[in-house]
């Protein structure tokens, strides 16, 4: 493969801090990788873990989840609730053997345009090294074949 792999990465971000931070990266003309596209939520508290699952199912190779720093939430506590949710969700994924390194969790404030750009580049590079996310696709073919094969031979 001569061409380098370009991962698809979805970013789930809150409107008030990270989205504004990403806007700031724009107004400061900070350059970063094109691989990440943002989906805007009012708050990290709004981000449903099922959306992350759906993103992977639909071909995302990596995910960024980012919102306001602790104590800076526009809605006072949405990010605190989100943090607990991610602690639990991440440990569930890990227990199921899912590669949690494909999800970057971060706090990026409205003033941290440079941090956002760095986060995008760093995540893109990490996912690029990991290669395409195929676990779900494999699930749909190989595992099922194996099981049905086992079932037949029994």
């Amino acid at each position: 493969m001569s061409e380098q792999f370009e991962p698809k990465i979805v970013a789930f971000v809150c409107n008030w801090c990270t989205y504004a931070g990403a806007d700031l990266a724009g107004t400061s003309r900070t350059k970063y990788a094109t691989n990440v596209s943002i989906i805007r939520f009012p708050c990290t508290g709004r981000i449903d873990f099922m959306l992350l699952m759906k993103a992977f199912e639909n071909g995302a190779d990596g995910i960024i989840v980012s919102g306001c720093h602790p104590n800076d939430c526009h809605y006072t506590s949405g990010n605190f609730h989100a943090r607990r949710r991610w602690i639990v969700f991440r440990s569930l994924l890990d227990f199921m053997g899912f590669d949690t390194d494909r999800i970057t969790f971060s706090w990026v404030s409205a003033a941290e345009g440079a941090k956002w750009a760095g986060l995008v580049d760093e995540t893109t590079q990490r996912i690029r090294e990991k290669g395409a996310f195929t676990d779900f696709k494999k699930l749909d073919c190989s595992t099922f074949e194996k099981i049905s094969h086992d079932a037949i031979t029994e």
Binding site: S77, R84, S106
Partner: peptide
């Protein structure tokens, strides 16, 4: 459905 401001995690950058 609750939280503590001092909840600990290592993975959020």
């Amino acid at each position: 459905n609750t939280f503590k401001p001092e909840d600990k995690e290592q993975f959020i950058k």
